[in-house]
């Protein structure tokens, strides 16, 4: 079976989608949650729910969004966030490929930002600073205009600056995205 055949089969069969995309989704969840157990639980739970709901037509970009939103739900919840902070493993911190001024968003900072930003902004934040997408990719991924993405990133930068300024005026902030 060719890769494209596998992708088609996975897109209409949750078991194949789980086998094919599960590891990628766990890696993504790990980059946010910073521990493998919660990441695996989250992805497993996502597929169980997809089956129960009859949502069987899925592809990787769609599942990426679902994982983002489930992770954010966990992070937004104060008790869930406290538990995640206790369990996070520094070794799972992803490399900061965006460079010095646009670094990886940590779990603690993401939690604080979740108190200042709505779901739409948080999703853009994850796309840019966790998934490291370009603005064009984010626009395509979320079905929004590039202009909207730019505006949301500007607000995100303001929020990051406010949080970083409150906690540590010298902390690096996310300043701009291409």
């Amino acid at each position: 079976m060719s890769p494209s055949d596998l992708a088609v089969a996975a897109a209409s069969d949750p078991r194949q989608a789980y086998q094919r995309y599960g590891p990628a989704l766990v890696r993504k969840a790990e980059r946010i949650l910073r521990n493998p157990d919660d990441a695996i639980d989250l992805v497993h739970g996502l597929f169980v729910d997809l089956i129960a709901r009859g949502e069987l037509t899925v592809d990787l970009p769609y599942l990426y969004r679902a994982v983002t939103n489930r992770c954010l739900n966990l992070v937004r919840d104060a008790r869930g966030r406290a538990r995640l902070l206790e369990r996070q493993q520094p070794a799972l911190e992803p490399p900061a490929r965006l460079g010095d001024v646009q670094r990886v968003i940590g779990l603690d900072l993401l939690g604080k930002l979740s108190e200042r930003l709505d779901a739409g902004h948080l999703e853009v934040l994850v796309c840019r600073f966790v998934d490291e997408m370009t603005q064009d990719e984010i626009a395509g991924h979320l079905g929004l205009s590039r202009k909207t993405i730019g505006k949301r990133l500007a607000r995100i930068q303001d929020a990051v600056a406010a949080v970083a300024g409150g906690a540590d005026a010298g902390a690096a902030g996310a300043r701009g995205a291409s």
Binding site: P95, A96, L98, D100, D131, E132, M133, E137, H141
Partner: peptide
């Protein structure tokens, strides 16, 4: 993390 930054715009994880 202590790792080199991308030489340009990174290829997204997706």
């Amino acid at each position: 993390a202590a790792a080199p930054a991308c030489t340009g715009e990174p290829i997204s994880w997706l």
